[in-house]
Every structure is written in structure tokens, then in C-alpha cells.
Computed example of a mutant assay.
Amino acid sequence: MTSIASLRKSYERAELDEQASHADPMLQFDRWLQEAIQSEVPEPNAMTLATVGSDLRPSTRVVLIKGFDARGIVWFTNYESRKGKALAGNPYAALQFHWVELERVVRIEGVVEKVSDEESDAYFHSRPLDSRIGAWASPQSEVIPGRTLLVTNAAKYAAQFLLQPPRPPHWGGYRLKPDQWEFWQGRKSRLHDRLRYSQGTDGAWLRERLAP
């Protein structure tokens, strides 16, 4: 059996320095995301979302980024899920992208808010029909007796809504408004590059190098 402690990897693909990086972290993120897409890494849009509930227990799960602009990072989910309930009580969260093949990590922290109903409606109606039915069929994060419940619910809502299921009131988008970013580039000898961007009260971004 291979010892986990003995696993090693040398990171030598690229570098990240202050002069080559954007002063605006959103533009730096856009650059790295486009490079991840063009490099055809598996699911470049997958990100880990970390929340902390009222019980002060942190939890993580993988969600998919569905949009971003100067206002922040957007994803969609069930508002009544564990993450939705956590965000209702504590709107601060963290996101992480890990593009293994590029030896890169992006960490983002900030406050989360719901997107507008218009944004949620527009994205919901762009989804495949099965996904729209699924949003009705699954009581996300609740204990269920078995998969049969999901199949039964899907059949029920498919018959009820036919080809035009409306957006469920418990489903929609969130936007994380970043106030801190970190860009991590793996480097040889574990002397990795880490650039942190912190937003001041004036909205300006302070870029600093962190020790690996």
C-alpha cells in the first residue's frame, strides 16, 4: 500500500509575480479562468463553497459558477438547502477554484446576497427541462426514505407543469461580493507564489505577496 505521507509532486508549470498580474483581481480571475477553459481542464467552472451555519460548524460543497462581473461571483441553488440556511443566518462565505492541471488555486472571500428575481428567472428558464423539473422534485439536504421519492416527485411535477415549469420560490441565485482574493501558483521546492488582494474601505485593492 502506498503511503499517503510519501506522495510528492514538484510544481513547475508557471509563475505568478506582481508585475505580470492584474491590479484588479476580477481581471486576474478572468484571465486564469479563460486559461483553464482553453486548457480543457476537467470542469473548470467547479468551485468549492464554504459556509458557516448558526451552529458555528463549517461545511463545504462543490457548486458551479454561472456568471461573474464587477458585482461578484454567481451560482444557483435551493434556498432551503443546508448552504441556503447557513447563508440566511451568516452571509459570509468563501469560494475556492482548484485547477490541478495548471497547478493553480484561487480563493475568494466576501459577503453573499441573493440575485434579483429577474436574474434567477432568466437562468432557470435557460436550463434543460429535466433540470427545471429536478429543482421541484428534490427537497435538497432533507432526509428522504429512498431514491423512489425523487423519481415519484419528478414524474408528478413533469405531469403538472408539462414543458413549462415555473421557477420554484425556494430556488434561485446567490452572488458573493469579494472583499479578499488569493491567487496561488505552485512553484518548485514548495516556494509557491501567493498574491493576496484585500479591498479597503475606499474600494481600492491592495495587492500583497504572502509567504507560501
Rank of each mutant, 00 (worst) to 15 (best):
K114D: 04
Y92E: 10
P139T: 05
L150C: 02
Y92P: 10
K156F: 07
A86M: 01
N45A: 11
L7H: 13
A158K: 15
T148A: 12
A159H: 13
S189R: 13
E119G: 08
R104M: 03
T2Y: 11
Q19S: 14
E80F: 00
G146I: 01
P166Y: 12
Q140L: 02
L195F: 05
P169H: 00
S120L: 07
R194N: 05
S3N: 14
S54D: 14
G89R: 12
R132H: 08
Y79K: 09
L16E: 01
L27E: 15
H170Q: 09
E12S: 13
R175E: 04
S6Y: 11
P91C: 00
E208H: 12
A23H: 10
T2L: 10
E18C: 10
V106H: 02
R167I: 00
Y123D: 12
E208C: 06
I4R: 15
E113F: 00
G173M: 04
L102M: 12
R8Q: 12
L191G: 01
Q19N: 14
P44A: 11
L64R: 10
D202P: 01
P25N: 03
S120Q: 10
E12K: 13
P139N: 09
F124D: 04
V115S: 02
R196Q: 14
L102A: 08
A211V: 11
F161Y: 14
A14L: 02
P91I: 00
S138A: 09
R187Q: 13
D55V: 01
P91F: 00
Q19D: 12
T51H: 05
F124W: 08
